[in-house]
Design a protein around this nucleic acid. Structure first.
Length: 572
DNA sequence: GCCGTTTTCGGCCCGACTGTTTTCAGTCG
């Protein structure tokens, strides 16, 4: 299933976790963690690499290269196997409980023999933590609360749910007279596909009333921690929100810091240290004199480190620092770059808005072209027929007269059957301006069959876009298993675009596969897949995902002028 | 364990909050 890179990275990360429990050297642990990230983010498949090839990966030295080679030859890493015999998997699982880290997990295991979350729960109920050094009544209470949280809703939320909470808080705090600026930061600003907690940053000279207003917001269910500079709350739905208040002159440094990622910040701080500087959320300082150099804007902070400003969507330490140093950062695609949307539905199939309303919504977005792509007949529950489709085409042509500034395209979303065929024959398909083709069934085919299926769809001269290619549903359905390198090679060769579907529970292709596909020269279509007027707003999540995949406007066919797009749709 | 236009040894990002500890360790981001 997973790529060798991901499996090797997981094993190295597990090694780091196990060592942190057994009390290994903290710097060695960090070295493993860094290497795990580097291996997961390495563009080439590691399974074919020898020792020298592995050592070319940054942060992978002799020792880690040998461990990875151990994995690629034997399927596991000997040291990990050995540590697993000392530390049961359940002990590592204990560190998933908030407020419980590796030190406390080890104490619980050694002193009480606790080796699972369930056993810990029992031990607390039986009062066995009383008198254990470092475990007071408050700690006990926090652990119980943490276990409950883990079991109920400790999971990450979809990006739109987090954005809704963030928007509400930013609006409320921005209205306070004490607040000069307020924005969300963290993984939401980086547009990660799921969000663990929401980070909000405010600039103020008077934090106390800001904190008070924050904890008094109606969405607050619980105050987790509360101080002068930082306050954390949890909403009724279990989402944690951290508010940081900084002096206005620290805004840029603070925004940079709280946007993360942690891995990106480590890199920027290392660059600062090497230049005799020190970077914190309060600014960039001379290391010795502690004299402030810059802190007002992110641009100033990056510039003083010798870097161009780096887009938040790239800040994952997966090559953006190197690209920035070489002045090779991509000019990322934006919502404003999009001239069209190539995937949408109406109430003729499973949409809930009329053709007229959907077109009006597209026009309100300022689009130059817009494709209606209702479902084809093989998705039987939609009850599509040739006659209905042709009637819709006539209605689209009539409607076109009302929108002289926007070109309407009549299309369809085909179903890729288990063999890679689609709903209609070539003759009928040639009547459409555009055909999206997607997997809607038989999700569990094996890798070979699924690869053949997607390749055959790409090779169909009437298929222009592969819709939501992995067919995943975040938190509900896994991505289909395919040899993506094979699929992307074929897509590039045949001039078939891969969709980036903007639905918050799809975001499909995901960012990592986008980057892989781009390496083969694949083009992309960033679409809403809108089934209602309101879904048009989801486009920001699709664009965020495209940005995390390092896409430029030229990579995205629906940023192109219509004549260039039409040439692409001819698949010649 | 990794790494090197100040180093092949001696560093490795930085700060806030909590709880239990009377001066600081653990956890988190």
């Amino acid at each position: 299933m997973a790529r060798a890179n991901d499996e090797a990275a997981d094993l190295i990360q597990e090694l780091a976790d196990l060592l942190s429990i057994t009390g290994g050297d903290a710097f060695k642990i960090r070295a493993y963690e860094k290497a795990a990230r580097a291996i997961a983010g390495h563009p080439d498949d590691i399974s074919g690499l020898d020792l020298a090839g592995l050592r070319k990966i940054p942060t992978v030295g002799e020792a880690i290269a040998k461990k990875v080679l151990d994995y690629t030859t034997t399927g596991t890493i000997r040291q990990v196997e050995e540590l697993r015999t000392q530390i049961p998997a359940g002990v590592r699982a204990l560190t998933a409980i908030p407020t419980l880290g590796p030190k406390k997990a080890l104490a619980l295991y050694e002193e009480l023999g606790v080796s699972s979350v369930d056993e810990l729960s029992t031990a607390i109920r039986e009062g066995r933590l009383r008198g254990l050094k470092g475990f007071g009544p408050k700690t006990e209470e926090n652990i119980l609360h943490g276990i409950e949280l883990l079991r109920s809703s400790g999971e990450r939320v979809l990006v739109d749910a987090a954005a809704g909470v963030a928007d509400e808080i930013v609006a409320a705090l921005s209205a306070l007279p004490e607040v000069e600026r307020c924005e969300h930061a963290g993984s939401l600003r980086r547009m990660r596909e799921t969000i663990g907690d929401v980070d909000v940053l405010a600039a103020s000279r008077d934090p106390r009333p800001v904190m008070a207003a924050f904890t008094a917001l109606p969405l607050v269910a619980e105050v987790i921690a509360s101080g002068e500079k930082k306050t954390s709350i949890r909403t009724a739905k279990g989402l944690q929100v951290d508010l940081r208040v900084v002096p206005p002159e620290s805004w840029g440094a603070a925004l940079q810091y709280f946007t993360g990622s942690q891995a990106h910040n480590i890199r920027t701080r290392e660059i600062a240290v090497k230049a005799g500087l020190k970077l914190s959320e309060y600014g960039l300082f001379h290391a010795e004199s502690n004299e402030l150099i810059v802190s007002g804007t992110e641009e100033e902070v990056y510039e003083r480190l010798g870097l161009p400003w780096i887009h938040p969507a790239l800040r994952e330490d997966t090559g953006e620092i190197e690209a920035a140093l070489a002045d090779e950062l991509p000019r990322l695609v934006t919502v404003e770059d999009l001239r069209g949307d190539l995937h949408s539905h109406t109430d003729l199939t499973d949409g809930i808005a009329s053709l007229e309303d959907m077109v009006a919504a597209a026009h309100a977005r300022g689009l130059e072209y817009y494709a209606i792509t209702d479902h084809a007949p093989n998705l039987f529950m939609q009850r599509m027929t040739d006659e209905k489709m042709l009637a819709q085409r006539r209605r689209v042509a009539e409607l076109q007269a009302e929108y002289p500034g926007m070109t309407l395209l009549h299309g369809t979303e085909l179903n890729i059957d288990p063999d890679g065929g689609v709903d209609w024959d070539a003759d009928f398909l040639s009547g459409f301006d555009i055909c999206v083709a997607s997997v809607h069934s038989h999700f569990t085919q094996d890798r070979d069959a699924m690869t053949r299926r997607l390749v055959r769809a790409c090779e169909n001269p009437h298929v222009h876009v592969i819709g939501h290619p992995t067919a995943r549903s975040i938190g509900r359905r896994s991505p289909v298993d395919a040899d993506w390198d094979e699929v992307f090679r074929c897509a590039a060769r045949t001039g078939t675009a891969m969709e980036v579907d903007s639905f918050p529970d799809r975001l499909d292709l995901p960012a990592d596969l986008i980057r892989r596909a781009k390496r083969y020269g694949v083009k992309f279509s960033v679409d809403t897949d809108a089934h209602s007027v309101g879904h048009h707003r989801n486009i920001r999540y699709g664009v965020g995902t495209a940005q995390r995949g390092w896409l430029t406007p030229d990579d995205v066919v629906n940023t192109w002028p219509l004549d260039r797009l039409r040439a692409f749709l001819r698949k010649t």
